[in-house]
Amino acid sequence: MKNGRAWALLLMVGLGIAAAALIASPAGAWLLHPATPVAREVRTLFYKAVAVTAFFFILAEGLLLIAVLRFRAKPGVPAATWHENFKLEIVWTAIPAIAMVILSGPAFTTMKYMETTPKSELQIEVVGHQWFWEYRYPKYGVIFANEALVVPFGKIISANVTSIDVVHSWFVPDFGIKMDANPGRINHVWFQVDHPGTYKGQCAELCGVLHGQMFITVNVVTPEEFERWIEQKKKGA
């Protein structure tokens, strides 16, 4: 029985460490390769949140573990009788409250940053359909659906997002972007991709039978390549 208890505790410690490691490890793709300034800001905010909350996490789980190890009932050792400590209660109310106020600072700054579009250099429209995405380039008169979105890197791109039928959500993790596409409403996002490449995402709001197949591909190319591509598209259309 004594042995079993040791194993049980070992297991609990192991699970605790695994939990902390899993939550904190930067294995998420957007954490490793944030592709836009917004995604980088979100990552910084995430690390700040982890730093602030890790203190409380370790303290609480640690105290729990120590209490379980130390205060097992032993014959002849009576339980303590105290059950109040006003000062302690003030402390554990005030400190988390202060921590939350501190954490709200960077959260609101980042939010403001996401919210304010710098002067945009290319405007696109994203329209959700059951179950594909339609993209429009109003300036070029180009409209197509069910293919990769193509944008130039380094340029500030603003997108109006809406839907033709049910609610969808345009989600590209590496860009730090998720925006619901609501029918009858137009939502607004912006992004500026650092490097050329292919970025993947998919619809994030349940939109019916094939919600799981509503993929997003964004090909980010050089501005020259983009000009060539859009000219071709114009001719094709």
Partner: peptide, 8 residues
């Protein structure tokens, strides 16, 4: 604090 110092 409830379990701390208790006889678990």
């Amino acid at each position: 604090a409830t379990i701390w110092g208790g006889s678990l």
